[in-house]
């Protein structure tokens, strides 16, 4: 993995965001076991990596992460950055026992927030679009968030059985 071409605002945004989000994860009252949390983190990180690999790769290259199309160390940190947000998403869902139509509302609100958050990162040049649009991200989050909830319920069922 290569080091950043220039260590500037986009790298600083990722570092601050990553440290702050991990501090919040540690500060929040414990709700899930360590292995459960690891799986949620890994799920979000892998989904981010695979999406990037498929739509920002060789034949379909719709955006770059960080300064270049190469696999930088900060690309890796960007994927890890998705972990805490998946954790917060599951955490709030579980804590407030969101059910029924409120789940739809919750997904829409989180999708809007995630899209706005990505918009901020586009502004900070963490993502550099080359044919991608923020609206596509909205649709993407709208698909990924229910999948994350399905993954959570699947895991919860497995853990409750034990």
């Amino acid at each position: 993995m290569t080091l950043p071409v220039n260590f500037d605002h986009n790298e600083i945004v990722i570092l601050i965001g990553l440290i702050a989000s991990f501090i919040i994860v540690c500060w929040l009252p414990k709700r899930f076991s360590l292995s459960f949390s690891v799986l949620v983190f890994l799920f979000a990180t892998t989904i981010a990596r695979l999406s990037d690999h498929l739509i920002s790769g060789s034949i379909v290259d719709l955006y770059d992460v960080m300064d270049s199309g190469k696999y930088e160390i900060f690309d890796l940190l960007t994927y890890i950055y998705y972990g805490p947000f998946a954790y917060f998403f599951i955490y709030v869902y579980d804590k407030f026992n969101i059910k029924g139509l409120r789940t739809v509302l919750y997904i829409i609100v989180c999708t809007v927030l995630a899209t706005l958050f990505e918009g901020f990162h586009v502004f900070m040049e963490v993502f550099q679009y080359k044919g991608w649009h923020l609206w596509y991200s909205f649709s993407f989050y709208l698909i990924i968030q229910p999948i994350t909830l399905i993954f959570y319920h699947f895991l919860k069922r497995l853990y409750d059985k034990r």
Partner: peptide, 20 residues
């Protein structure tokens, strides 16, 4: 649960390896 962990880790690791 172990298999879930492994498949997620392997997907991440293998795609990163080939990207590098």
């Amino acid at each position: 649960v172990e298999r879930l962990f492994l498949i997620l880790f392997l997907e991440f690791f293998i795609t990163s390896y080939f990207a590098v």
